[in-house]
Amino acid sequence: MLTIKDLKASVEEKQILNGLNFEVKPGEVHAIMGPNGSGKSTLASVLAGREEYEVTGGEVIFNGEDLLEMSPEDRARAGVFLAFQYPVEIPGVSNANFLKTAVNEVRKSKGLEALDSKQFLKIMQEKMKLVEMDKAMTQRSVNEGFSGGEKKRNEIFQMAMLEPSLAILDETDSGLDIDALRIVANGVNALRDGKRSFIVITHYQRLLDYIVPDFVHVLYKGRIVKSGTKELALELEEKGYDWIKEEVDATLNA
């Protein structure tokens, strides 16, 4: 589904991703962990097509297509979804209206007819249940005045509405209380159908108790420096990153 080869990217002349390799197959859940500033959000932004991030090398193939050649909206329409670490507020635009526009754009790109208000409302109600979202939230402006946790939950709600084939969750768990964490994780799990893939960026192994990953990777200095299974996350929780940093820095200096 997604193949990343030797990906290099920089922002404001500063190289952040230094030859990153990574593969995601349909239905897999990959967790990406790593110290602050190691390039996790940068990777997410590059995959989503954010302009400020300049790709300086490597390639990304998504479902057989060159992802890096596509505009951000085309990537979204092709099924790439990013749950933002810092969701953006759009004053005056209701969540419902925003999502209706988005859903219909995605449908249009697939040659499907636009949903009318009634059909849309029906689907929205179903998905709201999935993340135990309050009806009032859909009428409020996109993320405006939402608490940190509400914003994150709203991202998952949007994901449920858009039904992407690849969802990238950037620290969706941070800022969530214990109940919200469970709700969000349940939402994600409900969308795991054996075909849809996830890249879950997180600092906490706790989330991975709920969303059990197939693989865990450590990103450090713009590279995947260690990959493993669920157990790796436990090990990191216990030992921190120092031992990995030392290993990597030793090889870099050698």
Binding site: A48, G49, E73, A76, P87, V88, V106
Partner: peptide, 16 residues
């Protein structure tokens, strides 16, 4: 720019 990118990421073109 952030708002526009957020919309783009949901499949909405820059003009829209």
């Amino acid at each position: 720019e952030d708002q526009i990118f957020y919309c783009n990421q949901r499949g909405i073109s820059t003009e829209d």
